[in-house]
Design a protein around this nucleic acid. Structure first.
Lengths: 115, 115
DNA sequence: GCCTTGTATCGAAAAACGTCAAGATAGACA
DNA sequence: TGTCTATCTTGACGTTTTTCGATACAAGGC
């Protein structure tokens, strides 16, 4: 993580074993359609925060299942949660997704032309 | 995929169901440490190509297992293969990873400062 | 033709995952 | 205190994934 976890792309050097292990955990968290939708619902919120009570009814899944997926996203470091009174709010952690994006981008300049 | 699959980030709008399904398949392919290392070994090759005969002995896994992981990466559209004589060569497809990178980047300008 | 070497597929076992119902916990309010 | 609502955790079940040995296929050399 410390040698090339910050900015180097996949193509800059073969990934080490422990590095790959850690990154795979993050990508695995993204490898489920429900979790992807949850993350995008959270991230696309103005203010970056959304109540669980809004997330749960958006899917045809039981409340424990949504809670389970949120827990996995949290354990992967992609989101954070905070309880305020009765409700629990989730927010995205862009630094985590940005790091993964930097890893996947074939060259740091790729995105520049989109500005 | 056609509405926001190209450039829009996760935070621009909640992901649709079919979109999330398709993207999750790609991320699931990245969600295994062996496949991540395989992909980075392929992508980091000058010329972008590497022989399977070089990939297989790099892991303490059986040949069928490596072949299986390569097949999953290929099915996810992340790599392509070509047989030349006795050997099979794999190469990375940067467009695929770039697309995922664009999705994960919190803002299209994020990378610009790194240039 | 036959044999050897590199790679892919098949079939099975073990582990991990997604899902739910039931129960537990946290906070609000009376 | 008690009860009500929102959320999380537990335990179980079926499905998917990872891995392997055995086998099949492809190409080159004899």
């Amino acid at each position: 993580m410390q040698d090339s976890g910050c900015c180097a792309g996949l193509a800059s050097a073969p990934l080490g074993e422990s590095e790959a292990d850690e990154l795979a955990r993050a990508f695995k968290a993204l490898g489920d359609p429900v979790r992807l939708r949850l993350l995008s619902m959270i991230a696309s919120r103005e203010g970056g925060e959304i109540c669980v009570c809004e997330l749960t009814p958006a899917f045809e899944l039981s409340q424990p299942t949504i809670s389970h997926h949120l827990k996995l996203l949290r354990q992967a470091g992609l989101i954070a949660s905070e309880r305020r009174g009765t409700w629990v709010y989730y927010r995205a952690l862009p630094a985590a997704t940005d790091r993964l994006a930097a890893l996947l981008a074939s060259s740091p300049r790729t995105v520049e032309i989109g500005v």
